[in-house]
C-alpha cells in the first residue's frame, strides 16, 4: 500500500511538472496559457507507465469486451483456461503479471488481450479447437501481445493528446477529472478492438507465441492448426471481426512457415492434447451452469440479443 502511494506520487511528479491546481482555481487562465498547456500532454509515455497503471488500463479495456459478451457460466472451464494460460504466461517475458483468462459467451470466433495480463477468448473460438495445443497456441499469441505491450503502443496514438493531469487523476482513482481520461481510454479501446493492432505486431506475436507454447510443453503447431481452420473458414459473419482485425490466415501461416522451418523438429517433449481438454470440449456446456461462481444478484445489464 505504501509502495503504491510512493509510486503514485513519483508518477505524478514525473508526469506533471506544473501544478494542475493553478488551472482549477483560475479556470480562465486555462485558455490564456493553452500554448503552454499543450506541453503537458501524455505524449509518448504510455508504454513506459508503471505496472499498476498498466493493469488498471487493462481492466477498463477488458470490461468493454465483457460488456459486449459476458463470461461463460462454467467455472470449471474458466479455471481450466486460467491454468493453461497462466502456465504459458510463466514462459513469457512477463511471468509475474496478475494474469487473468476468460472465455466469453459468443458464437463469434475471436480472441482479445489487454495491457496488464488480461486475455479473453470467445466460446466460438474455443469450440473450433481440435486439441489443447491449439488452445495453447491462441492463448500464447495473446500473451505475446501483452508481453510486447502492443496495446499500449496502439492506444498511444489516440491518447497522446490526453492531458497529463487527467491521467494522474485517473490513476488516483477518484473520478472527477480522471473521468475525462477514462472516457478517452474507453473510446480508444473500442477503436483498438474494432480496428486491430499493427499487422507486424500480429506476425511478431505469432512467432513469439509458438515459442511460448513449445517452452511450456505444447506442440508449437497448435497455432498453425487454428490458422488453418481460419483460412478454410466459410465467409460468415462469425469470423468477420477477427478477419478485419488480423492479417489473412494464409499470410500468417506462410510467415510462420518461414520462421519455423524445421527448427522445432528436435523439440520433441511436446504434447498435442491432454485428457483435460477432451473432457471439457465434449462436456455439454449448459449442464455445467450449476458450478458457476456466485454472481451478484439482480444484474441490470441489458441483454441485447438472444
Amino acid at each position: 500500500m505504501i509502495a503504491r502511494s510512493i509510486l503514485r506520487a513519483a508518477l505524478a511528479a514525473a508526469l506533471v511538472s506544473l501544478p494542475g491546481m493553478a488551472q482549477a482555481q483560475f479556470p480562465n487562465i486555462g485558455g490564456l496559457v493553452k500554448g503552454v498547456q499543450n506541453v503537458k500532454k501524455l505524449g509518448d509515455s504510455l508504454r513506459k507507465i508503471p505496472e499498476p497503471e498498466e493493469i488498471k488500463i487493462g481492466g477498463d479495456l477488458a470490461s468493454i469486451i465483457l460488456g459486449a459478451a459476458p463470461l461463460v457460466q462454467d467455472a470449471e472451464k474458466q479455471r481450466y483456461v486460467n491454468r493453461v494460460g497462466r502456465w504459458l504466461a510463466m514462459h513469457s517475458d512477463r511471468p509475474d503479471l496478475p494474469w487473468q483468462f476468460g472465455i466469453v459467451e459468443t458464437d463469434d470466433v475471436n480472441a482479445f488481450s489487454m495491457p496488464g495480463g488480461y486475455v479473453l477468448i470467445s466460446r466460438g473460438m474455443f469450440d473450433q479447437m481440435r486439441n489443447e495445443a491449439e488452445l495453447a497456441g491462441v492463448l500464447a499469441h495473446e500473451i505475446a501481445h501483452v508481453a510486447k505491450k502492443d496495446h499500449l503502443g496502439a492506444l498511444q496514438g489516440s491518447l497522446r493528446n490526453a492531458a497529463l493531469g487527467d491521467f494522474t487523476e485517473y490513476v488516483g482513482g477518484n473520478g472527477g477529472i480522471g473521468g475525462a481520461f477514462k472516457a478517452a481510454l474507453i473510446s480508444a479501446g473500442k477503436d483498438m478492438f474494432t480496428r486491430g493492432l499493427n499487422h507486424d505486431d500480429e506476425y511478431d506475436a505469432d512467432r513469439m507465441g509458438v515459442v511460448i507454447a513449445a517452452r511450456s510443453g505444447y506442440s508449437p503447431y497448435g497455432l498453425v492448426g487454428v490458422l488453418q481452420t481460419l483460412s478454410a473458414a466459410p465467409e460468415e459473419k462469425g469470423y468477420a471481426l477477427m478477419n478485419k482485425t488480423h492479417p489473412l490466415p494464409v499470410d500468417r501461416i506462410e510467415r510462420l512457415d518461414r520462421a519455423m522451418g524445421t527448427k522445432f523438429d528436435t523439440v520433441i517433449a511436446v504434447v498435442e492434447d491432454l485428457p483435460s481438454f477432451v473432457a471439457l470440449r465434449a462436456a455439454p456446456a449448459p449442464a455445467a451452469a450449476k458450478s458457476t461462481p456466485a454472481r451478484a444478484p439482480a444484474r441490470s445489464r441489458p441483454r441485447r440479443r438472444n
Partner: peptide, 8 residues
C-alpha cells in the same frame, strides 16, 4: 450470440 463491431 454474436459480438461484432457494433456490439463492441
Amino acid at each position: 450470440k454474436g459480438m461484432d463491431e457494433e456490439d463492441i
